[in-house]
Design a protein around this nucleic acid. Structure first.
Lengths: 230, 230
DNA sequence: ACAGCGCCTTGACCTGAATCAAGAAAGCAA
DNA sequence: TTGCTTTCTTGATTCAGGTCAAGGCGCTGT
């Protein structure tokens, strides 16, 4: 298993920190394990610290009483979560569940705030992270409020294509199940499935299980911006 | 007109700063005026700083090409905006327009980052602000993704009631037009109007222009949580 | 007072997407 | 392989809410 410090060093939050600073951080954190399906924290629970994911995959979501859930984030190694209530002294605003066996680093609230108060570079890292989250959320709100499901999916696929651009090819692999993707896009599996087949038969993409080939990126972009296609 | 420093002192972002620190901040900012309807910045524009509203009212929104707009924030005096791109070196993710004549303080990016690097208390204030925004956005996403318009309106009214609780009475006043409210709630004026009258005839509220009397807060809470009502 | 203009309301209609209900694939265990 | 479970797809139906269109109400300024 890769050393904890190396994973931390790669996390954007801790970008540009010296080895000494990382050691100091590591010293105030405690390692936790979570098995698949385990709840890390639940919406409304009191928060006395936050987590950094070292290994595994976490989904953070909101759910309504009638069982529907909307996924806010799917997190991979190096990403922090549950940081919001640390700074406003409130409860967790959402629920976090491990979707694979995971390893977490937990930072207690008070000690982390002390550290940050003396360490402007960590503070700036935290600010950068929060701004990134805000931008993502802005995008999510925009999608939910003004775009239809096809546009949301197209936007998601183009983002994936941008991120996992393995040199030249236009094939991407979904890192989450289609049901989960439906949750991320604010819809249900049935609808997502239909949209996939509409985009397929329109010739924009080809779908083979979790393998998506983008045949016509410009077309997808059209779907995102104008919502019309053909 | 109230001195700029006093307004800044009241802003949560600058909470707990000494007079000296406020002076330093003020020194790096420049005052701008905006008339009603004037655009402060537009989505996609390069951002080289952010603003604090001193006086007036600002709406920050996303719009789609077919003219629909979704309002992300309506800001009052003391509130900062456009701070996200300062820290991730990107363009403004949304558009800001003055809805009344307004007075703004503009902080150039570089000088503000310098200041924050040496001033952990400003950094913490900024972190707190960003976390608050994230929490609001989380709530907004939850509303858009899993609640119907009636629940969103009920939630909004209850929040207003909590905020402007003028001692004992249950009457609140909308600070924005109903069309704007529709934009905030992610719907259109027609639908909002219908929901208002449904809630009225169900006996939960009474509406007289911008004056809303909440007759049955528990009932409204029911609408928010279960989405069902009588 | 009256005209003119925003803003709000109401009605009729339409459509995107959720729901309900079966199946079909695809994993996985024994 | 054979079941068994989980995930995905497809079809039929329903419904919330958006769109289009037509007034109504309450402003302001003249």
């Amino acid at each position: 298993m890769e050393p904890v410090l190396d994973i931390m060093a790669r996390a954007p939050l801790f970008n540009g920190l010296s080895r000494d600073q990382l050691e100091a951080l590591h010293a105030i954190g405690t390692v936790h394990m979570a098995e698949k399906g385990q709840t890390i924290f639940e919406e409304g629970e009191a928060a006395d610290g936050f987590y950094v994911l070292l290994f595994g995959k976490i989904k953070v979501y909101k759910s309504s009483m009638d069982g529907k859930e909307h996924i806010l984030h799917i997190l991979g190694p190096g990403e922090p979560f549950g940081e919001v209530p640390v700074f406003i002294g409130a409860n967790f605003p959402a629920t976090a569940v491990a979707t694979t066996p995971s390893k977490l680093l937990f930072f207690p609230r008070k000690r982390f705030i002390d550290l940050i108060s003396q360490n402007p570079s960590i503070a700036l890292g935290m600010i950068g992270l929060l701004c990134l989250r805000l931008k993502e959320f802005t995008h999510q709100i925009e999608n939910l409020a003004l775009k239809d499901v096809a546009a949301r999916l197209a936007s998601y696929l183009l983002a994936l294509l941008r991120d996992q651009r393995t040199s030249s090819n236009r094939s991407i692999r979904l890192t989450i199940s289609k049901s989960q993707l439906a949750g991320v896009l604010g819809t249900v599996p049935e609808t997502l499935s239909r949209v996939f087949s509409r985009l397929s038969s329109a010739g924009y993409i080809r779908v083979q299980g979790p393998e998506i080939t983008v045949l016509n990126p410009e077309g997808l972009q059209e779907v995102v911006t104008s919502g019309k296609w053909g």
